[in-house]
């Protein structure tokens, strides 16, 4: 499907959608939204790219293997951040007692490890959405 209008509009708007997704993810502890909403926005921007161009172009930007790796890496990142609390001598996912700096409430750098957790989970949700789409589009051809 060769449509110059759809391709140009998606080429222009995909970076802005991605920036908005990262904004929702990184401001998860301050404003409405968080890892799930921002990850869904990120994933749908990538799906828009793969739909407007060919599936091969989408695979060049983010292959199926890479999105599966990011998906498993996000879950592992969550567990690793939780284990930091156990290493510090308190419970699983301990925030302040685990040694994370708290910062000033209401500013961007605050809330300890919440921003790190949200970043990992947001990337996991985004790659989950993309992997779902790739699996459905590729069908039986993929192992």
């Amino acid at each position: 499907m060769e449509d110059i209008i759809i391709r140009m509009i998606s080429r222009i708007s995909v970076p802005f959608i991605m920036v908005f997704g990262f904004y929702i993810i990184l401001h998860g502890h301050l404003t409405p939204g968080g890892s799930f909403s921002g990850g869904a926005v990120l994933g749908s921007s990538m799906i828009l790219f793969a739909l407007a161009f060919d599936l091969e172009e989408g695979h060049k930007k983010l292959s199926h293997k890479t999105s599966t790796l990011i998906e498993t890496g996000g879950a592992s990142w969550f567990v690793l951040l939780g284990l930091v609390g156990i290493y510090a001598g308190t419970g699983f996912l301990a925030n302040k007692t685990g040694g994370f700096p708290m910062g000033v409430p209401g500013e961007l750098v605050s809330g300890g490890m919440i921003a790190l957790i949200t970043l990992g989970l947001g990337l996991k949700v985004a790659s989950t959405v993309i992997t779902l789409f790739y699996n459905l589009i590729e069908g039986d051809s993929h192992d």
Partner: peptide, 13 residues
């Protein structure tokens, strides 16, 4: 919060 999720998941994905 739900509005953002609904717009992304329901209308998009």
């Amino acid at each position: 919060d739900i509005a953002i999720t609904e717009a992304a998941i329901g209308a998009g994905v």
